[in-house]
Nucleic acid binder design. Structure first.
Length: 199
DNA sequence: ACACGGATACTA
DNA sequence: AGTATCCGTGTC
């Protein structure tokens, strides 16, 4: 399980090194294949820029705390607090390659009677809203310590370190030019492929 | 292309 | 109270 020291560095470096790690969430798990870094200071796209409540969250929680928030009236988005390095911030987990609990993920993502054609595994966690549904992450887990319980934690990736590429952040209207999105190279489980000419 | 839908932080 | 905004997804 990744310890607190892992998250006591700057968010960009954490976002890079989380690629290839495994996120374990109860009986489900997946390899992190897409992340984005946000800085707590000077980053217009970070909640800390406009929300006093988020700035208070940074103050009151330790590195490795889960920051879960509700967006677009429908989706929970899962971040981890990074604190204690050169700058504080968050890493948004944007996509996973499922490794355990795939059947349960499929039930959560596509409830109701089992369809005649099952959705491909690449669609289960290929986005921040999708992976929260697939893992069962909600606001109930907001603020929990991800360095305490191995059943809700990041774990070092098995085998060799996965190669990542960087790209601009997506889905935001401000400070989107920063190359703070990181993806596992040529991985079909990411939300959006890297734009041309990057890496 | 568009609808879906709620928390947060503004203005007043 | 009313308004603008928001790190998204599925279907049109």
């Amino acid at each position: 399980m990744l310890d607190r020291a892992f998250f006591q560095r700057d968010p960009v470096r954490c976002a890079q090194e989380l690629i290839g790690c495994e996120l374990v969430w109860n009986s489900c798990a997946g390899v992190v294949v897409e992340t984005e870094a946000y800085a707590a200071v000077g980053d217009e796209a970070s909640h800390t820029f406009v929300r006093p409540s988020t700035r208070a969250f940074v103050e009151r929680h330790e590195a490795g705390a889960a920051y879960v928030y509700f967006n677009y009236g429908m989706y929970w988005l899962f971040n981890v607090l990074v604190k204690g390095g050169a700058v504080d911030g968050f890493v948004l987990i944007r996509a996973l390659q499922p490794t355990r609990g795939v059947a349960l993920m499929r039930r959560r993502r596509f409830p109701g009677p089992a369809g005649l054609k099952p959705r491909p595994v690449e669609t289960l966690c290929s986005g921040p809203g999708k992976l929260a549904i697939a893992l069962g992450i909600t606001g109930e887990q907001h603020g929990i310590d991800l360095c305490r319980n191995p059943k809700k934690a990041f774990h070092a990736g098995s085998g060799s370190r996965i190669a990542w590429v960087s790209d601009v952040r997506i889905g935001i209207s401000k400070a989107a030019h920063l190359p703070w999105r990181f993806l596992a190279a040529e991985n079909p489980h990411v939300s959006v492929r890297e734009s041309a000419g990057r890496g």
